[in-house]
Design a protein around this nucleic acid. Structure first.
Lengths: 244, 244
DNA sequence: AGCCGACAGGTTGTTTTACCAAGTTTGAGA
DNA sequence: TCTCAAACTTGGTAAAACAACCTGTCGGCT
């Protein structure tokens, strides 16, 4: 008889144990990790299990291995401590209830130049747009626009001015059977229009960070475009990536 | 006797073969990949070898696996086709010979506020700065600044106004024994100063994209800061990332 | 004495064989 | 029609062997 609650596989347990020891200082950075044979003896597991655990640690950046010498401790990967604040991504998964804001525009318009290119539709054709003004701490902070091809906006709850209870990702995935895969992001800066400056409550003489996120499926077909407008005096974008 | 040129391991060869078949349309997206046993028979390898190859393909996004059903073809990951144009990264590896540009400032100055924070030095302390104006197609396009703590700038060739023959990364790694690991990037927008507008040959009424890249080692210790200033009318940043 | 090569013993990398567990589908039989 | 067992799939563990690589030591040679 097996226990009903699922236990994590052995190699995953080993990963956790070694991570804890590195963080606790038992294996200081720069030193050699115990060899495979030593780990096999200490934990009473087979070599493939040890190797699987060490492979995970290497791919996550905790250690680096050198054939013939051993595995060197690098320490907790600093990458992991930098939270990924990709703008635009949050608006695809978070239900609109979680952020306060008003829908300021909903309907079909002729696609702006850049949006048309990102959605891969013919120039001057109509697309669906849904624009929201995000409010934080009782102050307007971001202007978020969602563009969709017309064939993806039909039959959804997006055409109403009500906030969505579901995340946008689940909504489209359930209604239309499309699967979001990745985002191609373009970042530019420009001066705000008079309308934008008024809506965002910002001076007209400071620039705007404009983030365009083209949402695609695994084959690269564009599904949607998210535009996020951030007043540059109150927001900046942060990201982290390894050096290749 | 063995051949002297090293052959790639079997599982890597299998990865390449399957990638080519997916791209050629032999395994169309959405369909099931041949099962492990079928691949074992066709290629006359053992199961762990097949599993190792399929694991690589899954981690790279070519396929996705589902226990009990099989492995589904997703197609060439569109992520890979988007070239990663991380600003700042190029200036760390490319020799300065490859880009035309003049060194416009070299020396020790009091650290600007943001740079001091990123380098983790006490406020108002001195840091080394090396500023270059990049020229493309006979026009100034980018203003790149490199900040270093004083203890890292001593004994290097950076203090001269001559362009470096080596990449900055190799230069510091050889001279100082530090290892670049990752970059934490901040992106903001602001109006150019009169000096910057003049040097970049841009109008004073369009904004500037400012990218700050804090270079760190594996433990998170800051090693350098790269600032890239881009006129927003001529440049934008592009990036791609998967949806989690 | 000093230098250099061979060799032994350690390490990780790759491949094979074998078995069991867990999830899904299918079809035979009640 | 419904149930359930069999036959598929992928996921995980164990044991063994060989190859490639590094680092010492122990020679012999200059």
């Amino acid at each position: 008889m097996m226990s009903l609650e699922s236990v994590p596989p052995k190699y995953a347990q080993l990963v956790q144990t070694l991570q804890r020891r590195i963080e606790a200082g038992d294996y200081p950075p720069g030193t050699l990790l115990p060899s495979e044979n030593q780990l096999i003896q200490e934990f009473s597991v087979s070599r493939p299990t040890v190797v699987a655990a060490l492979r995970v640690l290497r791919e996550q950046g905790w250690i680096e291995s050198q054939q013939g010498k051993g595995r060197f401790v690098r320490g907790r990967p600093a990458m992991a401590s930098v939270e990924q604040k990709r703008p635009g991504q949050a608006y695809l998964t978070t239900p609109e209830n979680d952020t306060t804001g008003d829908v300021v525009e909903v309907g079909a318009v002729t696609a702006p130049n850049r949006v048309g290119v990102l959605l891969d539709v013919s120039p001057k054709s109509k697309v669906f747009v849904r624009r929201r003004l995000i409010v934080r701490d009782a102050e307007p902070t971001e202007l978020v626009s969602l563009w969709l091809p017309l064939d993806l906006s039909g039959g959804t709850d997006l055409t109403s001015g009500e906030p969505l209870r579901q995340g946008l990702r689940e909504h489209l995935q359930a209604r239309k059977g499309v699967r979001f895969d990745h985002i191609v992001e373009q970042i530019t800066a420009r001066m705000p229009s008079a309308d934008e400056a008024r809506q965002l409550g910002m001076p007209k003489n400071i620039p705007l960070l404009a983030v365009f996120g083209a949402v695609r499926d695994a084959s690269g077909r564009p599904l949607a475009v998210v535009e996020v407008l951030l007043p540059a005096n109150r927001h900046e974008l942060e990201d982290a990536y390894p050096i290749t």
